[in-house]
Design a protein around this nucleic acid. Structure first.
Length: 432
RNA sequence: UCGGCGGUAGCUCAGUGGCAGAGCGAUCGGCUGUUAACCGAUUGGUCGUAGGUUCGAAUCCUACCCGCCGAGCCA
């Protein structure tokens, strides 16, 4: 008999099947036992009836500890009570490996305990659903850029200097002679890539040594950063809206079961799949916040509560553009008619998930970029190669960064970013 | 770094000066359709750490450690 996987069982009703699985839980009476089985592809209930199997098999079934690994054979049966519509009438069980005193019991647990046991907790329904949605979003992003003839372009993780002088970086000792920093963004290198290949995107882990202890921060997170030569601010916004609406659409299309396991209200996601995201200028956003009674003035950056207030006003992500240049990074292109504002935007997710995208048109004039580097007190020598991009055939170009975990958290409805990455790295957690 | 809350059995928690508790888990037994199954029994403790007050401290005091939530910073 050929082995199959649980997700394929609904197509095999009435047939014999064999699966390689783990036992999540056993419920039994004297004459019947129910095995909750999982194999990574899905979940199914195995039913073992005493007078249909030999004594040895029945005793094996009722004695299986939580997370024992088993190979199970039986008949696939339709059953209305099962979420997948089928169950397995077990005729044969082979124990692969036992398990006893499994720490994560079928009752409630605290966050810290589950994070201590993250390597095991990943086996459970909620994390399973989230990891499959995370995968779908990454896969969809690659498809999106592939369809648009982008080239994936990998930027280094060891950096000679800060991309944006403001954030703290992790230092790496290079044999005592030199110091490198872990990348906080692949953007500058992506700009070089865009000049070589036209349309590129980087995707990889980035590191921020910020002592942030909130649900929206990790020390290590994954960022998707497209960069496009000859693309202006308007084109940049369009690309962002197209990408985000595409990602949400793909999850709604291919990961319904996972969203249901998570109890996600999909009606709250559907508008975001349609595109047509609202746009506010920075000044309009400030006025809006003031009208809500917030103590904020033009020139201030937004805090997390401000982002939440704006995000909650719309049923889909909202774009905030035309930022004051001094609250944003050094490389952002000012407006021709108002040099105090830059062609930069944030995209704020609904439901309080905060900023999911930050992007801008980049400065392409050499003199202006040199001036900004000086104004921001950045080490000029580390940026010579970056300035070269403005010396030889400089062109307008734009790009943005999307925080993968922020997007996955929003789409899945997760309470904390640590839930949406397999092994979160935080101020208070490096293990497992 | 700052503010708030917390640390008691493997897990989730109750216990505010007088014998260390419950539910779940685990173990054993029962039960023919269970859905975090149910019923009975058994098992289980450095009350975060150190010091202090007291006849007596999980409980009061001091210091420290750790965690959670929020702020700042950011994606």
């Amino acid at each position: 008999m050929r082995s199959t996987t649980i997700d394929k069982l609904p197509q095999l009703v009435g047939e014999q099947a064999q699966i390689h699985a783990w036992v999540m839980n056993v419920r039994s009476s004297g004459k019947i036992a129910f095995l909750q089985l999982r194999d990574g592809s899905g979940f199914v209930q195995g039913v073992v009836v005493r007078n249909e199997v030999d004594d040895e098999t029945f005793e094996l079934a009722t004695g299986l500890g939580q997370e024992s690994s088993v190979t199970v054979r039986g008949e696939v049966r339709e059953d209305k009570r099962s979420p997948s519509g089928v169950e397995l009438g077990v005729s044969e069980i082979r124990a692969v490996h036992g398990s006893s005193e499994y720490p994560i019991t079928p009752k409630e647990h605290g966050v810290d305990f589950l994070m201590d046991n993250r390597h095991l907790y990943l086996r459970h329904r909620g994390p399973w659903a989230i990891m499959r949605i995370r995968d779908e979003i990454q896969r969809a992003a690659h498809d999106f850029f592939t369809e648009r003839d982008f080239v994936r372009f990998d930027s280094p993780f060891f950096m000679p200097t800060a991309v944006e002088g403001t954030t703290n970086l992790f230092e790496i000792d290079l044999f005592g002679d030199d110091t490198a920093y872990l990348s906080q963004s692949g953007q500058l290198y992506a700009e070089a890539g865009a000049m070589a290949l036209g349309k590129v995107y980087t995707f990889g882990p980035t590191f921020r040594a910020e002592k942030s202890k909130t649900r929206r921060h990790l020390l290590e997170f994954w960022m998707l950063e497209p960069e496009v030569a000859y693309m202006d601010h308007e084109g940049n916004l369009q690309l962002q809206v197209d990408l985000i609406s595409y990602l949400v659409g793909r999850v709604l299309e291919n990961r319904r079961q996972e969203l249901e396991i998570l109890g996600r209200d999909t009606s709250k996601l559907e508008p975001s799949a349609q595109g047509d995201f609202p746009r506010l200028t920075y000044d309009e956003a400030i006025s809006f916040l003031q009208s809500k009674g917030e103590d904020i003035a033009v020139g201030d950056d937004f805090g997390a509560p401000h982002e939440t207030i704006i995000g909650e006003a719309y049923d889909r992500p909202v774009i905030i553009e035309a930022w004051p240049s001094d609250v944003k990074a050094f490389y952002m292109q000012p407006y021709e008619n108002d040099p105090t504002r830059v062609k930069a935007n944030d995209m704020i997710a609904p439901e309080g998930y905060g900023e999911i995208v930050g992007g801008s048109e980049r400065i392409y004039d050499l003199a202006l970029l040199e001036k900004r580097i000086e104004e921001h007190n950045l080490p000029r020598e580390a940026f010579e190669w970056y300035l070269d991009l403005r010396r030889y055939g400089s062109v307008p170009h734009s790009g943005f960064g999307m925080g993968l975990e922020r997007v996955v958290a929003w789409v899945t409805g997760a309470k904390h970013l640590r839930e949406v990455i397999p092994f979160p790295r935080m101020l208070t957690r490096l293990y497992p």
